[in-house]
Simulated scan of single mutants.
Amino acid sequence: MINIHTMLPAFEVTDAQGGALSLTDSVGEDNVLIYFMRTSTCQVCINHLRDLAGHKAELDAYGIRVMVAIPEGQEAVARWQEKYGFPFTGIAAQAGSTHAEFGLNKKIFGSMQESGVVLADIDGVVRYTRSAVIATGAYNWPELFTAIRELTPEAA
């Protein structure tokens, strides 16, 4: 997993419509939270995203743009976005794996995709990371919110 206090990597991703964007497009404008799903159909990951959606007011108050990295590519991002309708931007790497760019690889004989969370501040500096091979360990709202509270709220 990428280290805290390093810069958010500047690489291209694709959204649900196939549009290209860079992970650093929000630098200078928004804080960025990237949730890395194990798969687009991982029920544990979907439950984590439901919880994140339930905290949308807090995320908005801190000016956080949420992106959800899906390892199966742009078509899976489009299906995921249509099926679940979360208020987040689904993304996939244009070439290779968004997950691998962050050091989230397949473990346990190459069969289990790691999942996780990365939080970067408005300057693109990574302030929080959490990852796990087993999806249940990849997300912890109280721990994440502690890191979020260290960011400057939009209302301030």
Rank of each mutant, 00 (worst) to 15 (best):
N3Y: 08
H5S: 15
A10V: 08
F11D: 01
V13D: 03
G18Y: 04
G19H: 04
L23E: 01
T24Q: 13
S26T: 11
V27K: 06
G28H: 01
V32A: 12
I34W: 00
I34K: 07
M37G: 06
R38P: 01
T39V: 03
Q43P: 04
Q43W: 08
V44W: 03
V44S: 02
V44D: 07
V44Q: 05
C45Y: 05
C45V: 01
I46S: 03
N47S: 15
D51C: 10
L59M: 12
A61L: 12
Y62T: 09
G63K: 03
G63H: 08
V68E: 01
V68Y: 05
A69N: 01
Q74E: 14
E75Y: 07
A76S: 15
A78D: 14
W80H: 15
W80D: 10
Y84L: 13
P87C: 11
G90I: 05
G90T: 00
G90L: 03
A92K: 05
A93W: 01
Q94G: 09
G96C: 08
S97P: 05
S97F: 08
S97C: 06
A100G: 10
A100Y: 06
F102A: 03
K107V: 03
I108Q: 09
F109P: 02
F109V: 11
S111T: 11
S111I: 14
S111L: 15
M112W: 07
S115T: 00
V117N: 06
V117W: 00
V118R: 00
D121A: 13
I122L: 06
V126C: 08
Y128M: 07
A132S: 14
I134R: 14
A138C: 11
Y139I: 06
Y139S: 02
P142M: 08
P142L: 11
E143W: 02
F145E: 13
F145D: 12
F145K: 13
T146E: 15
A147L: 06
I148G: 01
E150C: 01
L151F: 09
L151R: 04
P153R: 06
A155H: 09
